[in-house]
């Protein structure tokens, strides 16, 4: 039972679909993961891999056409999918909060920064306006915004990109959530500002002890931040493990391809090895492994059957038939 209690969030067999005019799009197909208190989980993948939809499913902020069709999302052992909207509203912000990629579009341009922060505080607590204002200033100071008293009277357009993202982080941490979901938090920022924000998130995690789900396509960001990494492709998890396992001992053909295709310090003078083909169309998913059409080492079985997750090391799982190649070949023989 103690094993259960360690996990603050547990996602089991999550399926999320969008019902569009062109048919059902299965954006997430059977995702499982556990998040421990105070840990950082990284979800990495290309656009359309279902990484953001997984995060939005946990927050229950899917677009109107989207719906969780199967599975459980357990927060401290309770399935949030059974909760009504009122309970969910309390859950968002107080227990889980999110920061988005583009800090300009996620802040309301018609209200001051202070108003938007105080709104969040007053929605979730019984604080008076004055207390909420003090809390907003306290949070802005915490995230390293200079002159917070002046800033709360400013509008988002008056702030730089890095400042806006700090405001977003301050706002999301106002009610001390246990889980912070960061959906590509630094993609829109310059490298020097990105370094500031990543440093800030790590500092805040040490101070406040929240767990972080880091959703990104940047393998560099993932390498330095995360305790556990999920690699997603076509709405499924292809590989999971610690940063060291994923980067030094990749066991899924997609992860291997991804690592070969990015410029790194040690392959500067060699040619990159790109992954052939184009990302899959979610409307017409292959029957077997989602990566099979682009995989150079695909086996016969990859075409027809989805691989299970195989244990390839301690805390390291990969769903690729290549890991049980010998077994399949002996069976065929």
């Amino acid at each position: 039972m103690s094993e259960e209690n360690k996990n603050i969030l547990s996602v089991q067999n999550l399926h999320t679909s969008f019902f569009t005019d062109n048919g059902e799009v299965c954006a997430v197909n059977g995702v499982n993961f556990n998040l421990e208190k105070g840990k950082t989980l990284g979800i990495v993948g290309e656009s359309g891999s279902g990484k953001s939809v997984t995060a939005y499913s946990v927050m229950q902020i899917l677009a109107e056409t989207g719906k969780v069709t199967e599975g459980k999302i357990l927060y401290n052992g309770q399935n949030i999918l059974d909760w009504n909207e009122k309970k969910l509203q309390k859950f968002r912000g107080e227990n889980v909060s999110i920061i988005f990629q583009d800090p300009m579009t996620s802040l309301n341009p018609t209200f001051t920064v202070g108003y938007q922060m105080m709104e969040a505080v007053r929605l979730h607590t019984n604080k008076t306006k004055e207390e909420a204002r003090a809390r907003a200033i306290e949070m802005l100071t915490l995230v390293g915004v200079n002159e917070p008293e002046a800033r709360i009277k400013q509008y988002p357009y008056e702030l730089s990109g890095g400042m806006r993202q700090r405001v977003m982080i301050a706002m999301s941490l106002c009610c001390e959530p246990d889980i912070l979901i960061a959906d590509e938090p630094t993609t829109a920022l310059d490298v020097t500002i990105q370094a500031q924000i990543l440093e800030l998130m790590q500092d805040l995690q040490k101070k406040l002890g929240m767990a972080i789900i880091m959703v990104t396509h940047d393998l560099g960001v993932i390498a330095s931040m995360c305790d556990e990494i999920l690699v997603m492709y076509g709405g499924r998890i292809c590989e999971r493990g610690t940063a060291d396992e994923i980067f030094y001992n990749p066991c899924h053909e997609y992860t291997k391809g991804l690592l070969r295709s990015i410029p790194r310090v040690d392959n500067m003078n060699e040619k990159l090895v790109p992954i052939g083909g184009t990302p899959i169309n979610m409307l017409n998913m292959p029957e077997g492994c989602a990566f099979c059409p682009r995989c150079a080492n695909a086996l016969k079985i990859c075409l027809t059957e989805k691989p299970d997750e195989y244990q390839v090391g301690e805390d390291h799982l990969a769903s690729c038939w290549m890991n049980v190649k010998e077994l399949i070949e002996s069976e065929e023989a």
Binding site: V191, G220, S224, F247, Y248, R264, D266
Partner: peptide
């Protein structure tokens, strides 16, 4: 500082 800010996709170096 620009070079040091680049997130290196290698946990050991990072």
């Amino acid at each position: 500082s620009l070079l040091s800010a680049v997130p290196i996709p290698d946990p050991e170096t990072a």
